[in-house]
Amino acid sequence: MSPHPPRPLAAALAAAARGWPVFPLAIGDKAPPERFTAWEQRATRDPGRIRAWWRRAPFNVGIATGPAGLVVIDLDIPKPGQQPPPEWDLPGISDGADVFALICQREGIPLEWETFQVRTRRGGTHLYYTAPPGTRLPSTNGSLGWLIDTRAWGGYVVAPSSVVTLPDGAGTYTVLHRSAPAPLPPSLFKLLKPTPIPPKKPVHVPIPDSRHSTYLRAALEHELTHLATAQPGQRNRTLFGTAAALGELIAGGALPQQPVKERLEQGGVALGLTLAEAARTVASGFRHGARRPRRLTVSRTTRTPTSGRAT
Rank of each mutant, 00 (worst) to 15 (best):
189 F>K: 00
204 H>D: 14
185 P>V: 12
199 P>Y: 00
186 P>L: 02
206 P>I: 05
181 P>G: 12
179 S>T: 15
196 P>N: 07
189 F>L: 02
196 P>D: 08
201 K>C: 04
184 L>M: 07
190 K>W: 03
187 S>I: 00
198 P>E: 10
189 F>E: 05
179 S>V: 15
204 H>R: 09
190 K>L: 14
190 K>A: 15
189 F>P: 00
197 I>Q: 14
202 P>F: 10
182 A>I: 10
200 K>R: 07
194 P>Q: 09
208 P>R: 12
191 L>C: 09
192 L>F: 05
193 K>S: 12
186 P>C: 10
207 I>P: 13
177 H>M: 09
192 L>C: 02
206 P>N: 11
197 I>V: 15
201 K>L: 13
181 P>V: 01
183 P>R: 08
188 L>V: 03
191 L>N: 00
188 L>R: 00
208 P>H: 12
177 H>I: 00
187 S>E: 14
204 H>Y: 13
192 L>S: 03
192 L>A: 07
197 I>C: 04
188 L>Y: 03
187 S>M: 08
193 K>H: 11
180 A>C: 08
177 H>W: 10
179 S>W: 10
185 P>M: 03
204 H>E: 14
192 L>M: 09
186 P>E: 11
202 P>T: 12
190 K>C: 05
181 P>K: 11
182 A>L: 07
206 P>K: 09
200 K>Y: 01
179 S>F: 08
178 R>P: 02
180 A>Q: 14
206 P>L: 08
195 T>V: 13
191 L>F: 01
189 F>A: 05
199 P>K: 06
196 P>M: 04
196 P>K: 01
194 P>K: 05
176 L>Y: 06
203 V>A: 14
195 T>K: 05
199 P>G: 02
199 P>E: 04
207 I>L: 13
179 S>I: 12
178 R>E: 15
207 I>C: 10
182 A>E: 08
182 A>F: 04
189 F>D: 00
202 P>C: 12
194 P>C: 10
177 H>F: 02
187 S>R: 13
190 K>E: 15
191 L>M: 06
191 L>K: 06
184 L>N: 03
189 F>I: 00
177 H>L: 07
186 P>G: 05
185 P>D: 09
200 K>C: 05
183 P>E: 06
191 L>E: 08
186 P>T: 11
186 P>V: 11
195 T>R: 09
200 K>N: 02
204 H>A: 15
181 P>W: 01
193 K>A: 09
184 L>H: 06
206 P>T: 12
195 T>Y: 02
200 K>S: 12
191 L>T: 11
204 H>T: 14
207 I>H: 10
198 P>M: 06
203 V>Q: 08
196 P>R: 01
187 S>Q: 15
206 P>W: 05
198 P>T: 06
178 R>I: 02
182 A>K: 03
186 P>A: 13
204 H>L: 13
203 V>G: 01
184 L>S: 11
199 P>Q: 04
181 P>D: 11
199 P>L: 09
207 I>V: 15
197 I>T: 15
